[in-house]
């Protein structure tokens, strides 16, 4: 068992899936990366992505083990299967990286994101925004006579859908956390 409490990967080589994977299909994968919580570690990870031309769709980072001094980086990335394998191998090479897990291939995961969305308006639009928020189980965390701030959690798709609905109703600002993800089961 790895420090991430995720069962070792889909091959006996654990994090390094060595199946030949040269194809043109673009896949989106969610990677969980456990790193030493030290100065510059995020810069190393981001520098790897920019330096080698990989995509970052979403990235979150926070300390998860204070005593052990470990942070968990969740990164959602898109690329061909070969590029995804390269990204994992290259991440694994960074010295303060302890473990790299591809949650997308390793038995599925739950993914959640939180967003704060400010909607400005009055009259019918304001009522409609509140009604839709209820349907999406978004909470009102701030209110004035001309605005709401909604808090919504869910998959990135759900957050997208809610934001799209709010646009014609006076969406003024949006702040998203990026994806946090955990593997399913034990």
């Amino acid at each position: 068992m790895s420090p991430l409490k995720i069962k070792k990967g889909s091959t006996k080589h654990s994090a390094y899936n060595l199946r030949p994977t040269f194809s043109d299909v673009q896949e989106t994968h969610t990677l969980a990366v456990l790193v030493d919580n030290e100065a510059g570690v995020l810069a190393r990870v981001i520098g790897l992505f920019s330096g080698r031309g990989y995509n970052i769709d979403s990235l979150t980072v926070a300390e998860v083990d204070h005593e052990g001094g470990l942070s968990r980086i969740t990164v959602v990335t898109t690329g061909t299967p070969q590029v995804i394998e390269q990204i994992k191998a290259q991440l694994g090479r960074i010295v303060p990286v302890h473990d790299v897990h591809d949650l997308t291939v390793e038995g599925g995961s739950v993914e959640r994101e939180l967003a704060l969305i400010k909607v400005e308006g009055a009259g019918d639009k304001r009522v409609e925004a509140l009604r839709l928020a209820d349907i999406f189980r978004a909470q009102v965390v701030d209110s004035t006579l001309e605005s709401f701030v909604f808090q919504i959690t869910g998959t990135p798709e759900k957050v997208d859908a809610f934001a799209d609905l709010m646009r014609p109703l006076g969406l003024a600002e949006i702040a998203r956390t990026g994806v946090a993800a955990l593997s399913r089961g034990i």
């Binding site: 390094y16 030949p20 070969q82």
Partner: peptide
Amino acid sequence: IDPSSINKVIKTDMPII
């Protein structure tokens, strides 16, 4: 010795790290 060298540009049938 470097896993990132494997399958980087050429597909390998027998990778040995």
